[in-house]
Design a binder for these strands. Structure first.
Lengths: 206, 206
DNA sequence: TTACAAGTAGACCGGTCGGTCTAGTTGGGG
DNA sequence: CCCCAACTAGACCGACCGGTCTACTTGTAA
């Protein structure tokens, strides 16, 4: 086999990531991705069977970057558990401000954006984003358990549900910031994420 | 002038509302809207100068229905202020379940969907949705003030910020339900909306 | 040195997009 | 009864969509 010599595939991936994040899935055509990556369609369809398959790979690409830029720094053992959520928000705020300076608008959450746009149309993408969310929830829940262990959070708190609620809240805050086109919403509302609590054994009917 | 005899415009509006809510703005073409409304393109462009202008009108259409189906019933004086938020969620849950039975998937929030998809592409739609959110926030804030007046919520709570946080949380919960394609997320997380609080004079830098 | 697979180039495809335009068809006021 | 504006019909437009296909170049292993 040939060595994985060229970076063509990666250039396509990164172009797609940037373009889709800056606008939306539907707005970005395969031709635009190719042009930005300086690649011809022949190469594109050599590496990816379809735009939707590419998008699945783009989600992984987003996740890698997210883990590096956000998770790795916020969820550090040096920081008190509950402060890690605040730290995550702080980093996210800086990132949105940075993006807004380049793009002219707040892009919001790449995962949330794709979920909102495509969940009703493409079940593959929907469930991929769902898995990403589940991964984040696990990280949040582990952090909450740590906080419970230290006594920062009472033990009757349902860590899993609270983790989900925190993620939902952050997604909502990001969406509000995007809709207002003002990142400061994140500073105003965000800190409340660390105060969210859902108690165990709330009845769940059906 | 001729009387406003025909319902053509309204049929277009309702077809567009249903189709866009069921999938997305980009996925629904003008031709599809016309077909569903049993209208030809000539009529469409007689009533609406462009797809984007139609969408602005569709947002108003969503808002009318939302006020009728959700706000009017949840924000009743018969219900204790904080319970109104829980009631809103309950109604919303029923609605999402109902839609899911018809469509095969959870559609989420019509406003949030449009904001997520189009905020970065169309500033007119972005700011229109922003206004809708502002209207909801006002309703939430008024309810919170009522709760403060009754002593259900301590007076050092920032009603405006808390109202915004509540809206963000609800949007996030809807997005999670859509991404999971499971409305029960709303039952698990939703009740926490009534416990959200943001205190006054949290420093807001810059 | 040859042979073959990996990768690239780019013309091409049918279909659909939002939108335009001209030619009617109504229906109510004068 | 006529006229004119509101409305409808539907053919048509260029641009672009995701995707295909054939021909070519290249790197490397035998």
């Amino acid at each position: 086999m040939n060595a994985v010599s060229t970076d063509t595939r990666q250039r396509i991936l990164e172009s797609a990531r940037d373009l889709i994040y800056a606008s939306s899935y539907a707005e970005v055509g395969v031709a635009a991705i190719c042009e930005r990556a300086s690649v011809k369609k022949g190469s594109f369809y050599h590496f990816f069977p379809s735009k939707q398959e590419l998008t699945l790979a783009v989600i992984d690409e987003f996740l890698v970057e997210f883990k590096e830029r956000m998770f790795a720094q916020a969820f550090s053992p040096d920081i008190a558990p509950l402060d890690r959520f605040r730290k995550l928000l702080e980093i996210g705020y800086g990132f949105q401000v940075e993006m807004a300076a380049v793009l002219g608008h707040i892009p919001g959450c790449p995962f949330g954006n794709l979920a909102a746009e495509l969940s009703t149309q493409d079940d593959g993408i929907r469930s991929k984003v769902d898995q990403v969310f589940a991964l984040m929830e696990r990280q949040f829940a582990a952090t909450l358990h740590e906080a419970i262990g230290r006594g920062d959070v009472p033990p009757e708190v349902d860590a899993d549900a609270t983790a989900r609620a925190m993620l939902a809240f952050l997604e909502g805050v990001l969406l509000m910031a995007k809709t207002r086109n003002d990142a400061r919403v994140m500073l105003e509302l965000g800190p409340a994420v660390a105060d969210l609590r859902i108690l165990k054994s709330s009845a769940l009917s059906t």
